[in-house]
Design a protein around this nucleic acid. Structure first.
Lengths: 209, 209
DNA sequence: GCGTGATTGAACTCATGGGTTCAACGTAGT
DNA sequence: ACTACGTTGAACCCATGAGTTCAATCACGC
């Protein structure tokens, strides 16, 4: 029984993974269920045996993918919990890690899917934990609030600081990556992280006494 | 002949307008040519009489819409050509105007279309004049360079300043408008413009001597 | 080995929609 | 009135793909 249940779970995971891969590659409308079944190494009726609809299949695939992306992004904030003397350096490392997470293939595809299907699936942002970047902003705001308390940043409004940090960091991505279709070299990502932290610290760093 | 040519032009404009409206409402795949013909008040064969394909129809419709959007956005920068004493105030007005242009229905729909069809039409960013925000950044950088020359801003790197100004201003839009599906009140837009200019001036304003 | 339940492939139904054809019509220029 | 041309509506062809059915098969527990 354990293995049989396991078998079912494996199929389900394979289906969700294959579905996201195909949806990411072709978009919702162009992706056909047969392609997804092939990608998952599974027969078409098996797909319908786990998911009632192409639509619910899409929902679950996107939900799983965006949950994974969000976890990775929040994980990248960890170094901020205990920055050493070099706050700017740590910020830069975190910024660079976030940039890499936001520019990888799956993230770009996920963003494209969200934008393109948000009208067909208006509830999908609710399925995704807290509208995507939202929870990330919260988590970053928490870290910045700690830093403000210990006098490393201006104390005013950590929520705004977090929102602006992410905006400075991720805003330029759209144009530079041509909506996620052009890869960005790691050195360019490094420069972007540096420029972001530099400007952020000018605006939000504690005045050097 | 003048009127007959005019008649053709009118049909063409009606078709492009109707096409953008329907594509914006339904997305590329879901929009069917019959809907577009109806929206334009025209018969289906007439559509194919002007456009060879659904694909070229899409290209031309998106091109026209994004050209109009870009013109409006660049036009909104005009007050920066001759700011009075109150540079921050003028920046705030321009920022607010840009926010309104970026949050209106057509702009949001256009952005969704670009994101969703960029894989099917990889060349569409070339058709759109200079990848959308790119030319806007250039135009803003020009204005900021003038301001830097006259000592109102830090002189270093107006291109970076423009990129960061737009990132600070437009980056938060994505989460706040839920990818363009939620309207944002004008007072909220005002607050966003104010916060952007405040932070921007802290980072890029001339040190008050 | 036997039975239960999931899986498989193939074929099928049915709806949608791109693109075309065609005969009838309106209209402007001569 | 005649011609030329764009327009119109309706019907048509054809490809695609969602979702289903079914008999055959496989994997596992007993």
């Amino acid at each position: 029984m354990a293995t049989s249940t396991r078998g079912r779970i494996d199929k389900r995971q394979a289906i969700l993974g294959g579905a996201f891969a195909v949806f990411a590659r072709l978009g919702y409308a162009q992706a056909c269920v047969q392609d997804i079944a092939d990608e998952a190494g599974v027969a078409k009726p098996t797909v319908y045996n786990h998911m009632t609809d192409k639509a619910t299949l899409f929902r679950h695939a996107v939900e799983a993918a965006s949950q994974a992306a969000l976890d990775a992004r929040i994980g990248a904030l960890a170094p901020l919990a205990d920055p050493g003397d070099d706050l700017a350096g740590v910020l830069e490392d975190v910024a660079h890690a976030l940039l890499r997470l936001h520019t990888d293939e799956r993230s770009c595809a996920l963003k494209r899917l969200l934008y393109s299907e948000i009208t067909r699936f208006p509830d999908i942002l609710g399925v995704v934990t807290g509208s995507g970047p939202h929870h990330l902003t919260q988590a970053l705001a928490d870290r910045l609030a700690r830093l403000a308390l210990s006098g490393r940043l201006r104390a005013a409004d950590p929520d705004l600081a977090a929102e602006q940090f992410l905006a400075l960091l991720l805003g330029p991505l759209e144009a530079r990556s041509r909506l996620g279709t052009r890869p960005i070299s790691d050195t360019e990502l490094h420069d972007m992280a540096r420029a972001t932290v530099c400007t952020f610290m000018r605006a939000w760093g504690q005045k050097t006494p």
